[in-house]
Computed example of a mutant assay.
Amino acid sequence: MTIPIALVGVGKIARDQHLPTIAASPHFHLAGVVSRHADDLDVPAAATIAALKEQVPDLAAVSLCTPPMGRAALIGEALHLGLHVMVEKPPAATISEAERFAGMARAAGQGLYLTWHSRAASGVEPLRQWLSGKAIRRIAIEWMEDVRVWHPGQEWIWEPGIGVFDPGINALSILTHLLASPAEVREAVLRYPADRAAPIAATLALASDAAAEIAVDFSFDQRGPQTWTIAVETDAGHAMLRDGGGRLFVDDAEVAVPEGTEYGRLYARFAEVVAQGAIDADLAPFRLVADAHLIGRRETVAPFRWND
């Protein structure tokens, strides 16, 4: 028997990733949506989680695909109704808000999963295993994509604290999963369009007991081919993740990685969370983003235009 789940928010990420993944999932079936923009879906729809629960009494879980602002209220509503909760990244608008979620779930006795989808890319776990026992000398991250392609016309992406860190936090989620010790931000330069409240590019210098030098370059204005790479130099060879972690190269030779999709693995993990009533709520990537804003030097660049 599959778990009845509802999507809260049916925007681009829900349609591109969550809906097809749930449709193919052996663990879940879509029992409804909380959205005003899902008339094309053949499931119950409501304006609130509580209203949907009335329509679908056996609803057991929700997956939040809304923008990060206001997540505490949605999570609180779902937990109060006895639902397990899965959350799209980033988990909230602020660290203080996100830090409440685990305690809320624990008090309610429900499962909570704050997801980092790039950690579930096919090459990430094989690279983590390859790094075991090796001394990391340097890590170089280049994570560059075009906001016009991935968030067309979505003005919420330019809310303070988001911008280029919407994709950039994906790279940081992989980094914090690979490292055996926590990372910290030593320097940061954040480049803000003159007419926007969030950066369109960032350069970071990080360090960790597990890697003395970590260089990070983010852009949200990449034209043409998109770049998502993490290169690692060790005392026993080098490796690179490409295509957002989907492909792994060791000493310049591509190696086989497990089949499957990022979101397929996320929903498989959420099924475990539901079965165990577990809490999986790592905030390490989010803390690095917050630290980058705290110590980052601001530079102003040309205004942003959607149609440039």
Rank of each mutant, 00 (worst) to 15 (best):
G32K: 12
S35P: 10
H37S: 15
H37K: 15
A38W: 03
D39E: 15
D39A: 15
D39G: 15
L41C: 07
L41A: 09
D42V: 10
D42M: 06
P44E: 13
A45N: 10
A46N: 09
T48I: 04
A50I: 04
A50P: 04
A50T: 15
A51F: 02
A51M: 08
L52H: 09
L52Y: 10
K53N: 09
Q55W: 02
Q55I: 07
V56T: 05
P57L: 13
P57S: 13
L59A: 10
L59F: 10
L59M: 10
A60G: 03
V62T: 12
V62C: 11
V62S: 09
V62M: 10
S63F: 15
C65M: 15
P68K: 03
P68M: 00
M69H: 11
M69F: 12
G70Y: 09
A72P: 03
A73L: 05
A73E: 14
A73C: 03
L74G: 03
G76F: 07
E77N: 03
A78M: 04
L79D: 01
L79E: 06
L79T: 06
L81W: 06
G82R: 01
L83H: 11
L83N: 11
L83W: 11
V85N: 01
V85L: 01
V87E: 12
V87T: 12
E88G: 08
K89V: 00
P91Q: 06
A92Y: 08
A93Q: 13
T94R: 11
T94D: 08
I95M: 13
I95Y: 03
S96Y: 02
A98K: 08
R100M: 14
A102E: 14
G103C: 08
G103T: 02
G103I: 02
M104H: 04
M104I: 02
M104A: 07
R106C: 01
A107K: 09
A107H: 03
A108C: 02
Q110W: 06
G111E: 00
G111S: 06
G111L: 04
G111T: 03
Y113P: 05
T115F: 04
T115S: 15
T115Y: 03
T115A: 14
W116N: 15
W116F: 11
H117D: 09
H117E: 14
H117P: 14
R119I: 08
A120G: 00
S122N: 14
G123S: 07
V124K: 04
E125C: 05
E125Q: 13
P126E: 03
L127R: 03
L127C: 07
L127H: 04
L127Y: 02
R128M: 08
Q129K: 08
Q129M: 05
W130S: 05
L131K: 06
L131D: 04
A135F: 06
